[in-house]
Simulated scan of single mutants.
Amino acid sequence: MSFEVARTASVPPDRLAGWVERFSNRHGTVSIECEPDAVLLHAEDGAQARLVNRWQPLPSGPVTIPEVVAHLTRPRTVGLLLVRRGADAVGVADGGELVAHRVSRHYVQGRTKAGGWSQQRYARRRQNQARTAYQQAADDAFEVIVPQLPTLSALVTGGDRQGLAEVLADRRLEALARLPQRHPVLPVPDARLAVLTDAVAAARAIPIELNAEAVTG
């Protein structure tokens, strides 16, 4: 069942149980409806909350609220791949801890306003630099993430979609590219260690969509 979303919140795993308890206290008895990619909470006053599930689907059959919370917040090991033309950051996170990482900087020239033959030569040089940058990112992913493949539940990506596609097209990363990628591509401005650390928190947070009754009630 869908509803018109009035607001979306992002709740850290350690706060989800408290959030659900407050929702129930504020809006009354709550029933549960499970979807493959979400859990809907229906309160007796009409308030609704959709807890987005970015992990594997819940088991079929009736579930309780504690089971839902446990599923959405269970620590998992994930790979992280952030790609920009000027840098890449790769890592492995176990729960909220970044246990392996590497950041590489790349030199890719900016665009030029020059025309004619010089512009074409400049564009070719820039394309070659970008290709080299993506190759380095693939090397980093192969050396840092791929050895941990048996332990990974998902791959979380961020940055430049075209760059990500080129990196994951590397034959050495075929198995990595087949990992579940249920998280949206993170809009990272730069691939740095601090941004990679933030990506771990973003990957673990639970998005919650609320209808108008849940917001105003």
Score class of each variant (00 low, 15 high):
P66I: 08
D190N: 06
T151H: 13
L164G: 06
V90D: 01
T112Q: 01
D14C: 07
H183G: 02
T216C: 13
R50L: 14
I206A: 02
M1F: 12
S31D: 14
L210V: 14
E143Y: 04
Q109H: 09
V103C: 00
Q129L: 04
R124A: 13
A137W: 03
G163W: 00
Y122P: 04
V78E: 13
F23L: 07
W19P: 10
G110M: 06
G95D: 05
P62F: 10
I206F: 00
S153L: 08
L51P: 13
Q148F: 10
S104V: 07
H101M: 05
A191W: 00
A89Q: 03
Q119N: 14
Q48F: 00
R178T: 15
Q129E: 14
R131D: 09
A17H: 09
T112C: 08
A114T: 15
V156T: 13
A212R: 12
L155C: 05
V83G: 05
R105A: 12
S153E: 11
P184I: 08
L176D: 05
V20Y: 03
T132A: 12
V103Y: 02
D198K: 13
Q127W: 09
A212V: 14
D140T: 01
R178K: 14
E21Y: 04
Q129Y: 06
A202D: 10
D94Y: 07
E209N: 08
R102S: 06
S118L: 12
A6N: 13
Q148Y: 09
D139T: 15
T64P: 08
E166R: 15
R178Q: 11
P57E: 07
I145E: 03
S24A: 15
Q148V: 07
G18V: 00
L149G: 12
D88I: 01
A93K: 07
M1W: 11
Q127C: 04
R15E: 15
V78H: 11
F142E: 14
A49K: 02
D170V: 04
V167H: 03
H27A: 01
R111C: 00
L149D: 14
P36R: 04
P57G: 03
F3V: 06
V11Q: 05
S153Y: 04
A169K: 13
L179G: 11
P184T: 01
V30S: 01
D45V: 11
G91L: 02
R171F: 07
L176Q: 03
I32E: 12
G158C: 00
